[in-house]
Computed example of a mutant assay.
Amino acid sequence: MEPPSSYTAPASTPDIIIEDRGWRRLVPRLEERVLRSIRVAQSAVPDVIVDTVVLTDDRRVQRLNARHRGRNKPTNVLTFEPAGWGVGGEIVLALGQLRREAAAERKSLAQHLAHLLVHGVLHLDGEDHHHPGDARRMEMAESRILARLGVPNPWRAAR
């Protein structure tokens, strides 16, 4: 079904909702980094509109993951596709999970945040990583976008 001819896309600047104050304490220039990551990712997939980025904690993400995916555990990022015309997608990130992953991978929280924002934008574009070929394609797209952000390829060390 096509949107009505009066359809207007929402503004390209997403709302940033910071529910866990730790985000501000741990990521310098947080809002600037979030907006830049989203903007660069959207330049690679221009049809994706991110309406909201929620920076929250593991508990909230675990509840959302249980409710919407049937998995009662925290995860690093969740994406929610637009609910209707004129409504952009939402990206939700869990601070504790990102901190643990960044520490385990020996990278900064800011770099890992950029990676998962790009990952979320690609999910909103329909990309997925359930099958090896899909995962590889998504990883390649992520690494190309992250290079434009000055973030090292997160997959290079894993290979």
Score class of each variant (00 low, 15 high):
A135W: 07
Q42R: 13
R25S: 09
A11M: 05
R71Y: 08
T75F: 04
L124F: 03
E142D: 10
R144C: 02
M140V: 14
E31N: 15
R137S: 10
A41L: 04
L117M: 07
V53M: 02
G89Q: 02
D15P: 04
S43A: 12
H130N: 15
D57S: 12
S5N: 11
G133M: 07
R106K: 10
L149D: 04
P10F: 05
R67E: 15
V40K: 04
E142Y: 09
S5C: 05
P14V: 09
A83N: 10
V40G: 04
A135G: 03
G150Q: 02
V53N: 03
G126Y: 08
T75M: 05
I38G: 13
N76P: 00
Q111G: 14
A147T: 00
A103H: 04
R71L: 09
A104L: 11
V151R: 01
V92K: 02
L149T: 08
H68Y: 13
G89M: 08
A11E: 12
S5E: 05
H130E: 09
I145K: 06
L78K: 07
I38A: 04
L95R: 11
S108L: 06
R69Y: 08
R69D: 10
E2I: 11
V121W: 01
A135I: 06
K73R: 11
R60N: 07
P152V: 00
L93C: 09
R36L: 11
E32N: 08
N76S: 14
R69T: 13
R59Q: 10
E90V: 13
W85C: 06
Q42H: 12
A147Y: 01
V53S: 06
T8I: 15
G88H: 02
S143R: 10
V53T: 10
P152M: 03
E90N: 13
N76W: 13
R136A: 06
R59T: 13
K73E: 07
V151Q: 02
S12H: 11
G89C: 10
S43L: 14
I145L: 00
E142V: 02
D20H: 10
F80V: 15
G22K: 03
